[in-house]
């Protein structure tokens, strides 16, 4: 039994690694054998060299890769955390208390389909050009999944569990905090993960608002300077950090909800 588990863990790791190796191998190969011009696509090895170079070199976009990454991270985290802070409680309230649901649903349903990019002009007018406006665009993108998942999660609270608490004399607030929220937590976490994905994916769009630093800005500059290696480096860093942070959220989820994996 134990050995089988160990073997399947190895198997998983092996497949993970070979999937990655194949992806980068083919990519490297089609550039090396000249299937695609190096002006259009650079090999992963060249991207890695650019990465090493960009650790210290500020040409052509005015900042090192570290500075770009930190700025982008800060921007995304502000927008993302704000959306969790507002979206999760709002979704929970809407899902648990009917008056809140009736009050907020119409406005939420109208705001929901508006794409984050459509907000850019009005946000620039309202908030000016700067981190506030950029963070707002990310906030809008991350907000919707937070609300929807928290809402759906708490609505699915087992009615019998509510009855258990009611027969024990629970108040409405106790029902909300002690029964509703814990039952909703798995869905809330799903929402938070989806939110983070949306936030991070909206980064490049948000940095279209007159940024002078950030990964999205670096990609734009790389494009203007016809440096595909810089464009791909920016994309790769966004992909890697996104994956790493999503992984971190999954670990946090496991720690916060230890009862979920029991059997």
């Amino acid at each position: 039994m134990y050995n089988e588990k160990k073997r399947s863990a190895w198997m998983k790791m092996l497949l993970n690694v070979s999937g990655l190796a194949m992806f980068f191998g083919i990519w490297e190969l089609i550039v090396d054998i000249g299937l695609v011009s190096e002006k259009k696509l650079v090999a992963p090895s060249a991207v890695f060299m650019t990465f090493i170079d960009k650790l210290t070199n500020v040409v052509p976009d005015g900042n090192t890769i570290i500075a770009h990454t930190l700025t982008s991270l800060q921007l995304v985290l502000i927008g993302f955390l704000l959306s969790c802070l507002i979206g999760v409680p709002l979704g929970l309230l809407m899902g648990f208390f009917k008056p809140a649901e009736y009050f907020f649903t119409p406005i939420f349903e109208i705001v929901r389909p508006i794409p984050p990019l459509a907000w850019i002009p009005i946000v620039i007018v309202a908030l000016g050009i700067g981190i506030e406006a950029e963070a707002f665009i990310i906030f809008v993108a991350a907000f919707v999944p937070c609300v929807i998942n928290s809402y759906t999660g708490i609505q699915a609270t087992n009615k019998t569990l509510l009855d258990v608490a009611k027969t024990a004399g629970a108040t409405n607030a106790q029902l909300f905090f002690k029964v509703g929220i814990p039952s909703a937590l798995p869905m809330v976490f799903t929402g938070i993960k989806v939110s983070f994905g949306s936030a991070w994916a909206t980064l490049v769009a948000a940095e279209m608002i007159a940024s002078t630093v950030g990964l999205g800005f670096m990609i734009q500059q790389g494009r203007n300077a016809v440096r595909p290696d810089i464009v791909i480096l920016g994309m790769s860093v966004i992909g890697l950090i996104g994956a790493a942070l999503t992984g971190l959220l999954s670990i946090l989820e496991k720690k916060a909800l230890p009862w979920r994996d029991l059997k």
């Binding site: 019998t160 258990v164 027969t167 029964v179 039952s183 937590l185 909800l257």
Partner: peptide
């Protein structure tokens, strides 16, 4: 006190 058919325990 109430005992429920489907146990109705809090999983968390």
């Amino acid at each position: 006190g109430f005992v429920f058919q489907r146990y109705a325990l809090f999983g968390w």
